[in-house]
Design a protein around this nucleic acid. Structure first.
Ligand code: MN
Ligand code: MN
Ligand code: MN
Ligand code: MN
Lengths: 218, 218
DNA sequence: CATATTTTTTAGTCTAGACTAAAAAATATG
DNA sequence: CATATTTTTTAGTCTAGACTAAAAAATATG
């Protein structure tokens, strides 16, 4: 049983490892946890003692099998609770992250088993992120960033890379959600901006918008 | 915003005040929190600084308006989550307490508002305890302990005073749950034991069983 | 009502998890 | 490749919330 702080670190390290292969630096961990590097070093040393991760001074940390198992369980809980909040309690997709950040730490395997069932064993959370199964396996989906599409290509929105309320509210305003079809009408080489078509609307989006939206093509 | 430890103390003090009017001793708090008296004194002093309660050295603690508000909000959350676990996730009434003990600390007023609605604004939890409204008001019910009934009287089970798995499982075995009608066929003056009728079954119960079950008469 | 007993508080420690400042190692640069 | 810069760790502190042992206050008792 890990403490709240330990769980949050384990999850953060898992996500950092997804982004870039190899060991994660204590500085990167500190940044993502919004804490100081010395605090991250401290915690990483404690987690290494507990065999949650392997740690080589000045080289960084890597989760062990046990660490990855713990991380995926937390992520599973986080995403299942997000589904509950959106599907059952009718929260909007931009409102659920902070609450799920708390709910993911409730300890009860029976609870999560029953919740999963109650929700109909969903495969994706409201932001399009896959929900790992009890063994920590993720469904692999072929997705790319909207920014990777070329003029005249199209894709279906399957997720968001960034899920801040600001970004999600922007997408709402533009009527983009999971499942929305997006046509790329034009793309500016200079700044990566695009003109896209969503439903009957055509509009301009910046590179920043395009590179935070996942789409499935073909 | 109070810490997990503070919230648990505040709730415990509220419950102790319900049982017996007047100030609650730090020893009683320590007992109910399963901690040492010195730890309870420490925490009570901190909560007094925060105006959650008034505290007179060697006399004990009493929650302020603010303290009572906080306590009833936690109790409201605890009981609503219990309803969720039993009604929606089909947990048994003896399995939910420990999980609700964690869930009651999730901070989000919007969440609890929506949960209440989702559950159909229940008035009682699975153990028959009233769920306070947003303002902290409890429904007052006329209930007495089964042990207070005399021979030939009857009552309908409306709640339990003790809600340990052991006790609840005993009640299950005897087919007693919220709403069950109980006839007192006999009562032993010497030890307070009773012979009761539940449905078609007649059996003996000890005083300890009888004084942990709430019934409504008339 | 003086003294023994019980209850409650205080003083001093410990651990988890944060922080700052300084030291040490790794990396970048002329 | 010697030195400057950046990254990372270490040493030392702090706070919340626990603990033990001792002191002090309240209460019980002959
Ligand atoms: Mn979290
Ligand atoms: Mn999500
Ligand atoms: Mn609790
Ligand atoms: Mn209950």
């Amino acid at each position: 049983m890990y403490s709240l702080a330990e769980e949050n670190y384990i999850k953060a390290i898992f996500h950092l490892q997804q982004q870039k292969k190899g060991a994660v630096s204590t500085n990167a961990i500190a940044d993502s946890m919004e804490t100081k590097a010395s605090s991250a070093t401290d915690m990483v040393q404690k987690l290494a003692d507990k065999k949650v991760l392997s740690y080589v001074k000045y080289k960084g940390a890597q989760l062990t099998q046990e660490g990855r198992k713990t991380a995926t369980t937390i992520i599973r809980k986080h995403r299942l609770w997000e589904v509950f909040l959106v599907d059952k309690l009718k929260f909007h997709w931009d409102e659920v992250h902070e609450i799920a950040e708390q709910l993911e730490h409730i300890h009860s395997t029976e609870l999560i088993k029953r919740l999963d069932n109650f929700l109909g064993n969903p495969a994706f959370d409201p932001h399009g992120d896959p929900i790992p199964d009890e063994h920590g396996n993720f469904i692999k989906t072929e997705k790319k960033l909207l920014s990777q599409l070329k003029k005249t290509q199209f894709g279906v929105c399957v997720g968001v890379k960034e899920s801040s309320p600001e970004y999600l509210q922007y997408l709402d305003k533009k009527k983009i959600s999971i499942g929305t079809k997006i046509n790329v009408l034009g793309k500016e080489f200079f700044d990566g901006s695009m003109v896209i078509e969503v439903g009957r609307d055509q509009f301009f989006i910046s590179k920043k918008i395009a590179e935070n939206l996942y789409v499935q093509t073909q």
